[in-house]
């Protein structure tokens, strides 16, 4: 009987001080951007290059070179990718993510394309 009393009245008693551990809402995530491929100062021997990375979910990502522009939307997991055509020589690839409020973050990668392998 004592055990039953304990279980019913003591163990499962609701807290009289809710939210003691803090608010139920979570802090807004700050805009993040990571470009996993290509690495900076990379030397490639093919004209097509896959640019990939990670940011927050469902955001617009602008991938630009001096001659090309593409906008892709990041997936539910935040990953994104796009294929670019490189010019022979140095290529500056700019990757910019935009939040819904217009906040932006940019990463630049330099890639050198050479037709003949060294």
């Amino acid at each position: 009987m004592g055990g039953l009393y304990y279980v019913l009245n003591v163990q499962y008693q609701s807290s009289t001080t809710p939210f003691l551990s803090g608010p139920v809402t979570s802090a807004p995530k700050s805009l993040s951007l990571e470009v996993t491929d290509p690495s900076d100062n990379r030397l490639v021997f093919k004209t097509n290059l896959l640019v990939s990375g990670k940011t927050l979910p469902h955001l617009k990502v602008l991938i630009s070179t001096s001659e090309q522009d593409q906008v892709v939307t990041s997936s539910a997991s935040g990953s994104f990718s796009a294929s670019l055509t490189l010019n022979e020589g140095p290529n500056k690839i700019s990757v910019t993510v935009f939040s819904d409020s217009g906040e932006e973050k940019t990463i630049i990668k330099n890639v050198f394309y050479l037709k003949e392998q060294i």
Binding site: S39, N41, L43, V111, F112, L114
Partner: peptide, 8 residues
């Protein structure tokens, strides 16, 4: 990451 690099 160390191979095939270009400094321009």
């Amino acid at each position: 990451n160390l191979q095939n690099k270009a400094y321009v």
